[in-house]
C-alpha cells in the first residue's frame, strides 16, 4: 500500500458515496446513466469473485464488499426505488457494444486462461470503458448537475491515481501488470475532456454545460 493507491481507493469510495447521497437526498437519479451503473456492477462482481478464493487483507476484503454492495444498491435505487426519475430516453447507449468486445478481448489477451483470471481481465477492460454511457448521457443532455460532476471527477481521479501507484510500484517493488496499466491509461484518457470542463467550469462555480 502506498499513498497513491490509498488516495485512489479513497477517491473511488468517495465517488460511490457521492452518487448514493445524490440519489438519496434528491430522491432522483436524473442525469445518471443506469447503463454505466449496470456495467460497474458487472465489473465489481466479475472482478471480486476472488473474495471466496483468496484472502489478501481485511482492508481488501472490506473494500471489495463495499464496492459490490454499493453498486447493487445504486442499481436498486435507479431501477426500483426511484425508477420514475430515471432518464430512459437519453440513456440509450447500447452496452452490448462494450460487453461483447471486452469479453472477447479478455479471451484473447490475458495472463492465464483460467475462469477467474479471464473474468478479472474482462472486468479490467470493461471498467476502462464503463463510463462511456454516462459521458454519452451528459453529451446528449448537454449538461450535468454539480454533484454529478463531482462524482465523475472523483471516479476519474481514482484511475489516474492508480497510474501513479503503478509507476511507484514499478520502481519500488519491480511489480507491474501490463493489462491493468494499459486499461487504466485508456480509462483515464476517456475522462480527460471531462476533467478539462470540470476544472474550467465547475470549480469556478459554473454549471457543467457543454459548448453548443
Amino acid at each position: 500500500m502506498n499513498i497513491f493507491r490509498l488516495a485512489g481507493d479513497l477517491s473511488h469510495l468517495l465517488a460511490i458515496i457521492l452518487l448514493l447521497i445524490k440519489i438519496w437526498k434528491t430522491r432522483s437519479c436524473a442525469g445518471i446513466s443506469g447503463k454505466s451503473q449496470i456495467l460497474f456492477a458487472v465489473v465489481y462482481i466479475s472482478r471480486y469473485l476472488d473474495l471466496v478464493t483468496t484472502f489478501v487483507s481485511v482492508y481488501n476484503t472490506v473494500m471489495k464488499l463495499v464496492f459490490i454492495v454499493s453498486s447493487v444498491a445504486t442499481l436498486y435505487m435507479m431501477y426500483v426505488k426511484f425508477k420514475a426519475t430515471y432518464d430512459h430516453n437519453h440513456d440509450s447507449f447500447r452496452i452490448e457494444f462494450l460487453l461483447v468486445p471486452c469479453f472477447v478481448l479478455a479471451l484473447l489477451i490475458h495472463a492465464a486462461f483460467t475462469p477467474l483470471e479471464i473474468l478479472w481481465t474482462f472486468s479490467i477492460y470493461l471498467e476502462a470503458v464503463a463510463i462511456l454511457p454516462q459521458l454519452f448521457l451528459v453529451s446528449k443532455t448537454g449538461e450535468a448537475e454539480s454533484i454529478t460532476s463531482h462524482y465523475l471527477f472523483a471516479l476519474g481521479s481514482y484511475r489516474a491515481l492508480y497510474l501513479l501507484n503503478w509507476i511507484y510500484r514499478y520502481y519500488a517493488e519491480g511489480h507491474y501488470d501490463l493489462i491493468a496499466i494499459f486499461a487504466g491509461a485508456i480509462q483515464t484518457i476517456l475522462y480527460c475532456d471531462f476533467f478539462y470542463l470540470y476544472i474550467t467550469k465547475v470549480l469556478k462555480g459554473k454549471k457543467l454545460q457543454l459548448p453548443a
Binding site: 493507491r5 472482478r47 487483507s57 473494500m63 464496492f67 495472463a111 501488470d177 501490463l178 493489462i179
Partner: peptide
Amino acid sequence: TGKDQQHDEL
C-alpha cells in the same frame, strides 16, 4: 505478470 499472480489491488 504470471500465472500465480495475486491481484492485491482493487
